[in-house]
């Protein structure tokens, strides 16, 4: 009964979608807004990667909201799981020596790779979110490989808050310098070099560290006592 009912709903939805989609051809020429970004992006923001210039400059306020949502998730997660009573720890087979050594060996390299990704966000694909996720996966590996070594939750929390505050402070500096929140007030530099694009690398460093700490914190909270 339930299945038939949901199938009927889905068929109605599919009809609406078909009517809607048939008006939007696939692979059509770009839009006015998108063309403007491609033409003026380097000149106005200094970033070679146009997606980065949109994420951090043209639509930087969205990114602030996005960072807030991640912060919110880790806060909410901590609040919901905070008062979980300590269960008796199940018997975990300790990881073998090879695994532990490999994890220890790989961990700094993963961190370095993540840092590279978010430092070069304005030049190559990638950025703060991707880099942060890679850093967090490094922490995940560490938890799997050396489960007895834990990083203190409070240090994650501190990095999260500081990252968010750094983002807002950069935005407010732009406000005092140029009259607009998140204004790109630093010199744009020569395109396609590491030290270019004004505030973009600074914000990406803050976001990268923040996202890395947040995701690692989420994994840490979830994995606790399991």
């Amino acid at each position: 009964m339930r299945k038939i009912f949901s199938l009927i709903i889905l068929i109605i939805l599919a009809l609406g979608v078909y009517i809607c989609i048939s008006e939007i051809p696939f692979g059509k020429p770009g839009t006015a807004v998108g063309n403007y970004y491609i033409e003026k992006g380097i000149e106005e923001t200094g970033a070679v990667n146009i997606v980065t210039s949109i994420v951090l400059n043209y639509r930087g306020f969205d990114t602030l909201g996005e960072v807030t949502i991640l912060f919110l998730a880790s806060l909410g997660l901590g609040a919901i799981l905070a008062t979980v009573q300590n269960k008796t720890r199940g018997v975990i087979t300790p990881p073998s020596l090879i695994l532990t050594t490999a994890c220890r060996f790989l961990f700094p390299f993963i961190l370095m790779f993540g840092a590279y990704i978010f430092l070069h966000g304005h030049l190559t694909p990638g950025g703060g979110f991707q880099g942060g996720a890679i850093i967090a996966s490094g922490f995940l590996l560490r938890y799997l490989g050396c489960p007895q070594k834990r990083i203190r939750q409070s240090s994650f929390v501190a990095i999260e808050s500081l990252g968010g505050i750094a983002f807002i402070i950069i935005g407010l500096l732009g406000f005092t310098a140029g009259g607009f929140f998140l204004f790109n007030f630093l010199p744009k530099g020569v395109a396609n070099t590491l030290l270019s694009a004004g505030i973009i690398p600074l914000i990406y460093i803050a976001i990268g560290l923040k996202v890395g700490a947040e995701m690692a914190g989420i994994i840490d909270t979830l994995i606790e006592e399991s």
């Binding site: 998108g34 970004y37 949109i54 994420v55 998730a73 799981l81 979110f129 989420i218």
Partner: peptide
């Protein structure tokens, strides 16, 4: 067009945030 890519980056992160919240609720 680069705009949708910027939107999707936001949307992916929102997705993982909702997912983490939901899983913590499931555990409780």
């Amino acid at each position: 067009d680069p705009t949708p890519q910027a939107l999707v980056l936001t949307s992916i992160v929102i997705g993982v945030a909702v997912l983490a919240m939901a899983l913590s609720l499931a555990i409780r």
